[in-house]
Nucleic acid binder design. Sequence first.
DNA 1: GTATATCTATGATGCTTATCATACTCAACC
DNA 2: GGTTGAGTATGATAAGCATCATAGATATAC
Lengths: 229, 229
Amino acid sequence: MDKLQLLKNTTIFSSLTPPDLSVVSSLFIEEGFEKEEFILTEGDPPNWLCIVKEGNIKMVKHSPSGRDMIMAVMSAGDVIGEVAVFDGGPYPATAQGMGNGTILKISRRDFISLLKKYPSVALEIIGDLGRKLRGAMNVARELRGERVEGRIAMVLLKLARKLGTPVDGGVDLSIHFTRQDIADMVGSTIETTIRVISRFKKEGIVRDSKGKMTLDVKRLESILKEIEI
Amino acid sequence: MDKLQLLKNTTIFSSLTPPDLSVVSSLFIEEGFEKEEFILTEGDPPNWLCIVKEGNIKMVKHSPSGRDMIMAVMSAGDVIGEVAVFDGGPYPATAQGMGNGTILKISRRDFISLLKKYPSVALEIIGDLGRKLRGAMNVARELRGERVEGRIAMVLLKLARKLGTPVDGGVDLSIHFTRQDIADMVGSTIETTIRVISRFKKEGIVRDSKGKMTLDVKRLESILKEIEI
DNA sequence: GTATATCTATGATGCTTATCATACTCAACC
DNA sequence: GGTTGAGTATGATAAGCATCATAGATATAC
């Protein structure tokens, strides 16, 4: 799959005509990233806007006390860094590779002029930001409302929906998440997360062999139902 | 202060010329609200976009277990409901009056056509959404990182910056927040919040007489510094 | 194959905080 | 002026989870 093909399938450029798309495409640079590599760093000046091409990227927010928070996991077609590129402020979070992959990046300068040239892109960005805002608000609410077991069930469900492939007996997660990753998504510690997931494994809600997790979506949902009573 | 005057000072319309502004102004309806009144309700279809004219409004996200989370406090010039109006999905949070006040509201239909007519407004909305996204991500991180005492110090500081008026000996909060409100902002319970604030009062960091709080900003900041070591 | 590192696992302990219970304070209202 | 209700206060108790410690499992490197 080439640059053009990816951009065509990216929501923020979905309204562009093929000729416009190839103009836009020429402004993007392709670049590889590796596991754990920092693609953007929280607090840095917003020189680049990126679009994920291959692989997965976690958006991490660091806290002074050293406990990280994974705000979201991005995959092909997702846009990264647009908030900062737009208002000129520092990146609000760090983008870190979860494995090898590639991104397309465009300089802030080029992106701003592109926006002026194609106003329809601005409308798509509003939609994109709206979705992200909804997501962030949900993270905040979930951290507050339920306890760790429920939050882990929620996060596993979210991952299953975004990245899962159905197999018999459940849904496979295509990426490997360590217990630490999951702890950072639900706002807990690695030990507590291990304990909860071990319990899920004993109950057959989760299976994992060599890092690939298989989830029993139905039963995860029913855990959440019970909580919501 | 009339409608026109307020809209002129609203960020999302800051780029419009006076004649355009009066066209826009005519599309807005003025409406009063009372303490605790629901101005928008989470989950409802997005028929209106609102701008706060007078008074203050809290954005509340309900959780299944009944524990509310106050995501933000809005005051004059702030925009409410734009995410939903834009993508057509349900409102992501409830907007509730914190006292008497007034809003300006515009129908979804009118707002969408206004956006098409004045593309510069779209750019301002991107900025607005970006700020909100930054805010929501910070809420999520704070909930995770620190414990209640630090989170309350943080929230009080944020309120002091947004709504405070300097007086000798500190900063006065112009609105009355109950302990429950503050608990809902930091993700805690009313009892714990009362205990922490009582401690702050004993230490002279917070004073309150008939509901008006006076904050010692310096010392609140130093509490956070200590935590961040 | 052994070594090294990373991830997972599990126990013991105690801190924070939620929860339950009860009482006090103050303002509003008939 | 007493009644009512909302907000504030404070103690007792225990649930939930973080923290510390240690060990096994699995992968990667030499």
